[in-house]
Amino acid sequence: MLHTVNKSPFERNSLDTCLRLAKKGSAILLIEDGVIAAVKGTVQSAKIEGAVGNHAVYVLGPDLKARAFSEDQVISGVKVVDYAGFVDLAEEHGTHNAWL
């Protein structure tokens, strides 16, 4: 199962619910405003810092870049992927759960 989150954790509870309901070991990809959760040093950072032990966590590079975040600002343990990586993840995991 591949979970995607596209909302900022400052705006919605989509990430919280995703982390509560995603089975351990499943993959999580942060896209669009969801990438804000992958950034170090915010009051929301602890959520993804805690998640990397239980899930493979990815963040979409183009969405980071668009929002002026560099890869060094990404929480350690989170992998940055490009669009081709997104496609690979979707293909690899089959079922997709979009937390809107």
Partner: peptide, 15 residues
């Protein structure tokens, strides 16, 4: 419990 049910399904439609 819900996490297990979701993980075992073939398709997730969310809203």
């Amino acid at each position: 419990e819900i996490a297990d049910i979701v993980d075992a399904s073939d398709c997730v439609i969310s809203g």
